[in-house]
Amino acid sequence: MTTTLATPRRRRKRSLFAAIGLLPFLVFSLALAAYPLSQVVRMAFSEIDLGATGFSYSWSGLDNLVRVLSDASAWQAIGNTVFFVVMTVVGSLLMGLIAALLVNRAVILLPLARNVMIWPAVIAPVVVSLMWLLIFSPTVGGINKVALSFGLPAQEWLNSGPGAMFVVIIVDIWHWTPVVFLFLYTALQSINEEVLEAGRMDGANEVGLLRHIVLPLLVPAIAAVGVVRIVMGIKVFDEMYLLTSGGPNGATTLVSQRIQLWFFQDLRFGDASAFSLAVVLMTAIVLAAFLFARRQLGKRA
């Protein structure tokens, strides 16, 4: 196709420029992601002393990993994370789907809704955390102020383990529904109106159309954004930082916060690194399982 240009000299120049162009990306990623990860691996298998000259390492094999995996607080964090991820993924998929279906049918409020619907996603998680603290706080929160005005009993959800987890899940769903909304709204817009019209001609009502035509067509988009939300859920750290700081009694401590607490508060550098490694491996397994399941389902369909 490009006969006029494909002289050897030109091709060599082009691949030289291609290599030079990729180098900054490679250097950056290797230096600040691959190298730090290698340090995590090194620390995970070392006993670490913080001396006057900095860290000193001595090989300790699987000691850290064994200690971490027999630590109840590690399993509490893993359990919390699994519960949190399942609830927030399902919750935000549901809310995002409803929002997308509504906006897709909107006429008067369309421009406003399409704009406002993404606001939560641009606010810093820490600020989101603060915003909801101002609402749920047992002492000054907006909910209790309203409850008091109506003579209702005040809530103290943040003071109980399950209550705090419930609040944190609500907050995460509020924060990240916009991402699901955008995915599904885009997918909805690509559905051919004529298909729906044909369904209506055949006498299907709106619920029937949704169940038998729209939802099946949305399955790939839902699966795609589901993966995105799973990854986001495993990464969560900031959202609970102000709201619950992982409490009460570790009830809302997720894996990320466990790592940070061990490393910076307890100075258990090796344990924090070993747990980091375990989390990376578990993330990989979960994602592989999800992608495998998706492929199997895709084959059957």
Binding site: L32, P36, M43, K235, F237, S256, F269, S276, L277
Partner: peptide, 18 residues
């Protein structure tokens, strides 16, 4: 890189930046 939870890199980034 986008799949790795940032918190798991914190120990490594800390010693790297240090």
């Amino acid at each position: 890189i986008p799949l790795i939870p940032p918190a798991t890199l914190v120990p490594g980034l800390y010693v790297t930046l240090n």
